[in-house]
């Protein structure tokens, strides 16, 4: 079975985020990138599937600081093929990213595409559904574990309120991973170093980006303090009386 895992880096929230002078984007000079947590789970889930039933795992991402390290780490975990897309990605959005991945996936013909269900910088929607649309494949999101049986997969999807649904999907399919069946594993540095000597990262140049369908950000800003809340103190009756008075005052009663 061929499993493809397209992933992306997102701004690391450990660093303070600043808005650039245009007022509509992050200042990239202080930005540090880190793997999208959900994508990390997607890689782990792919490795777990491989360990359980065999297969070939391809991890792909666009070039940026730390991309090589991440790909080698994935190889140390058990990924077989590492693809780094090269080009100018400074203006990229998820629509364009989905196009880039879709081109590659059409060529790769995987049985399963696992990707993080969301990322904290998904301004124009998550990558998974966009990818499924472009590839004409079924999509299930918020997946927390799956088993593959022949040409179909039984996936567990989490709903709020603690409900879990088991859904049968015909393969090939795109799955948005909420959580792998176990937390992403730790890889010893010695293993990563070893892999660096043996694993190859395939570089794939990308000519242009198709940004259509994306959103245009008009203003990006830090959360602003709203009007201050008023704390009501005293006994229950007293507070209730005050509440009624306030509701009347503002006309909701």
């Amino acid at each position: 079975m061929k499993i493809a895992v397209p992933v992306k880096f997102v701004p690391d929230l450990v660093e303070e985020l600043t808005i650039d002078p245009s007022g509509a984007a992050l200042d990239t000079s202080w930005l540090r990138l880190i793997i999208n947590e959900f994508d990390d789970h997607a890689v782990e889930q792919a490795i777990l599937l491989k360990e359980r039933g065999g297969g070939q795992v391809t991890v792909m991402m666009t070039e940026s600081d730390g991309a090589d390290d991440f790909l080698f780490t994935a190889a140390a975990k058990g990924a077989d093929q590492l693809v780094k897309l090269t080009g100018d990605f400074s203006s990229i959005n998820n629509h364009a990213l989905a196009h880039v991945y879709a081109d590659l996936l059409k060529e790769l013909q995987p049985d399963l595409v696992l990707t993080g269900v969301q990322a904290h910088n998904d301004i124009d929607g998550a990558v998974g559904p966009l990818l499924a649309e472009l590839l004409g494949l079924p999509y299930v999101g918020y997946v927390a574990g799956l088993t593959v049986q022949g040409d179909k997969a039984v996936v567990r999807k989490e709903y709020s309120g603690g409900l879990v649904a088991e859904i049968e999907v015909k393969l090939p399919a795109v799955l948005g991973i909420q959580a792998a069946e176990q937390p992403p594993r730790y890889v010893a540095y010695s293993k990563i170093r070893q892999v660096m000597g043996t694993a190859k990262i395939e570089e794939r140049p990308v000519a242009g980006l198709d940004l259509s369908g994306g959103t245009a950000v008009s203003r990006l800003f830090q959360p602003e303090a709203a009007e201050r809340a008023t704390m009501l103190e005293g006994g229950a009756d007293e507070v209730a009386d005050r509440l009624v008075a306030i509701f009347k005052e503002i006309g909701t009663l």
């Binding site: 450990v14 540090r32 937390p183 594993r185 730790y186 890889v187 010893a188 540095y189």
Partner: peptide, 28 residues
């Protein structure tokens, strides 16, 4: 055990932080 990635979550996070940020607190 480390080679096998077998350790508790707290320790795993601490090591990942030391690797990434150079300190176990996970601060910049």
């Amino acid at each position: 055990l480390v080679d096998q990635g077998r350790m508790d979550k707290m320790l795993q996070d601490a090591l990942a932080n030391v690797g990434r940020y150079g300190n176990s607190f996970g601060q910049s």
